[in-house]
Design a binder for these strands. Structure first.
Length: 581
RNA sequence: GCGCCUGUAGCUCAGUCGGAUAGAGCAUCCGCCUUCUAAGCGGACGGUCAGGGGUUCGAAUCCCUUCAGGCGCGCCA
């Protein structure tokens, strides 16, 4: 039998029970955390002081009473009271070794599947199909995908929703330009092979040519009223643009597929219903000809309310309307328990409004959780939003090409003896991993600086460092010439470097729990970086292949568990590993 | 004007939701390759956690306030 729960949860449960038995309130938390310093053991319980205060006793005396009720002799070597009333827990080496053996037999490294799986709808990536994907789409796409993979791994039912922008006034301009090209007998598919150029050309016509602009506006109306020719043209455009996105997803290693696309236009027929529903409920108010909802939650001190406009003067709908329809769909059709929106932080007011209104209007069950997972902007080294050298918006595909090329140059210089096709492949994996990891490893909510040298460095919390750590283990396994699946020797923990590695290996589950609860993959990145560091230290201090029989098998298993954990962890982040680099 | 976010070492970033002496990497300096990949490891240096109040056994973390920066705020998405 493996872990039922991770160590932290296990200790929490046991210590809390002991606290209650010693007279603490039923809900007094044990607050077990990884210890801040080695002298404080492996885990520390911080809840004693607070609980003692509540029942009016001396914290250290209370801690002593708790210890009398607490039996951790099966897993802990030593349990101490320290400082004002901390409990320090030192895990037992024998127990660590035995548990590691169990972990190695499990394909999922003993990480439990959640007991109560949820249906989690995740809205991420959502590029605007009018243009090509650019660097601004990186964060939503990469972070969303990592969270999706982690949720699925833990056993939740995930429904990906790629809420692509395929509707709106700008499409009139694009369709008008397609019409013009067609009239000139130009190949439309050729022109659309570079969407960025196409968009700029259309925009130039729109700005400079009055007749063109008028035609563009006509086409918007025609499109929205379902004109067949117009729709055919639009479909052609969308198809090509979507194919561009899919190419980028493939290069990036993102799990989004065509079936995950639920575009804005899919809600068109439901927008009228949303308005009617709001009307029926008396939530709607007309203001300057537009239909709005005024909610007191969004009033300032003077009572002035920032409304949501759901229908323009003249009848047009807005993205708020679409988002409301999407909430309804996600609740009523997809049966979401939780909906996560990986969308730019600048839209946080918008989402607060949508969420508040959705609750008021009963579009979601009270128990359904709607969570905006905002993220900051990617900045250049000048501290301003990231641009190309020429000052334009960086196309994502071009950025990824550059990453692969830079990584290839690096590999070729460090490892000139490797065959070129392998260097290319290493360059591809390292390049893509570096871009993704640089993004994933930073706290989601803050802006971050895009810097080639930092992300491609082999030092520090970077993808190349992690991939290198993994390839070192792979190299040892190759050289050992042992059929690793047949190893059955016990794992013995003696050296401090072995011990540090063993403890760290158990904390994988704690890291991925944080990823799903907060939608923040950087917790997993930090964990994998620490694991790699602890492994490197172990690797330097503890010879594996040269060790005596028995010890060799024991250490080899520690290395194998490290490899499995790195590979699984990186795969949850959407990052490939390399056996050689 | 109102609201949201951010401010931690020279630089890039963490800080497990109120816990013990605030941590990494880069840069700088000093060590370690006849032994499993030195793309590595060990060590040193470096801090008024933007400033000021408050809450309490305890605050980078919570509250108030000032300053600096970013972003939003009725018919774009």
């Amino acid at each position: 039998m493996g872990f039922l729960v991770n160590i932290q949860t296990l200790l929490n449960q046991r210590i809390q029970a002991a606290m209650v038995a010693s007279g603490a309130a039923d809900d007094a938390p044990a607050l077990v955390r990884q210890s801040a310093k080695v002298q404080f053991g492996d885990y520390q319980a911080n809840g004693i002081m607070g609980a003692a205060k509540k029942i009016g006793t001396n914290p250290r005396e209370f801690a002593a009473k708790v210890l009398e009720q607490l039996d951790l002799s099966d897993i802990a070597e030593k349990v101490d009271i320290a400082g004002p009333g901390f409990i320090n827990i030192f895990l037992k080496n024998e127990w660590l070794g035995a548990q590691l053996g169990e972990q190695r037999k499990s394909e999922r490294l003993d990480v439990a599947v959640v007991a109560d799986p949820q249906t989690v709808v995740v809205d991420y990536s959502a590029p605007n199909l009018a243009k090509e994907m650019h660097v601004g789409h990186l964060r939503s796409t990469v972070i969303g995908d990592a969270v999706v993979r982690t949720l699925e791994f833990l056993g939740h039912k995930v429904v990906r929703q790629n809420h692509v922008g395929d509707w709106g006034t700008q499409f009139g301009m694009l369709l008008a330009y397609m019409e013009r090209l067609r009239a000139q007998n130009s190949k439309i598919s050729m022109a659309l092979s570079d969407l960025e150029t196409f968009y700029r050309a259309a925009k130039t016509c729109f700005d400079d040519d009055e007749a063109f602009a008028a035609r563009a506006r006509e086409l918007v109306v025609a499109l929205q009223s379902g004109d067949e020719e117009c729709l055919a043209l639009w479909n052609e455009f969308i198809d090509i643009s979507m194919a561009h996105c899919e190419e980028t997803y493939k290069m990036l290693g993102v799990s989004l597929a065509r079936q995950d696309v639920m575009p804005e236009s899919a809600y068109n027929d439901d927008l009228e219903n949303v308005i009617n529903e709001l009307q029926t409920q008396g939530l709607l108010q007309e203001s300057d000809g537009a239909k709005c909802v005024f909610m007191e939650e969004f009033a300032n001190k003077d009572g002035e309310i920032t409304p949501i406009i759901v229908q323009k003067t003249g009848g047009g709908f807005l993205y708020a309307t679409t988002d409301l329809a999407a909430v309804r769909y996600r609740q009523k059709v997809l049966n979401a328990d939780r909906v996560l929106y990986f969308v730019d932080a600048r839209q946080s007011l918008h989402f607060q409004q949508i969420f508040t209104l959705s609750r008021k209007a009963g579009f979601v069950e009270p128990t359904t959780s709607l969570e905006h997972m905002p993220f900051g902007t990617v900045m250049g080294s000048d501290g301003k939003p990231f641009k190309t050298r020429s000052g334009g918006v960086a196309k994502l595909s071009a950025l990824l090409e550059e990453a692969q090329e830079r990584a290839f140059q690096l590999v070729a210089s460090k490892n000139p003896d490797m065959a070129e096709d392998e260097q290319r492949n290493v360059g591809r994996v390292v390049g893509i991993a570096s871009v993704k990891y640089a993004d994933l490893s930073k706290n989601r909510t803050s802006d971050y600086v895009f810097n080639w040298d930092n992300m491609l460095s082999f030092e520090g919390n970077t993808a190349p460092y992690l991939l290198y750590a993994y390839s070192r283990v792979a190299s040892i396994v190759r050289r050992s010439e042992i059929d690793v699946s047949s190893i059955n020797a016990p794992i013995t923990i003696a050296a401090e470097q072995e011990r540090a590695l063993a403890v760290k290996l158990f904390q994988f589950e704690e890291a991925i729990q944080q990823v799903v609860s907060d939608g923040m993959p950087h917790f997993l990145c930090a964990y994998l970086y620490e694991l790699s560091g602890v492994f490197m230290t172990f690797y330097e201090a503890c010879p594996i292949l040269a060790a005596e029989s028995g010890l060799k098998e024991s250490r080899l298993q520690l290395a194998l568990n490290t490899a499995s954990t790195l590979q699984l962890g990186l795969s949850l982040l959407g990052i490939e590993t390399l056996e050689r680099m």
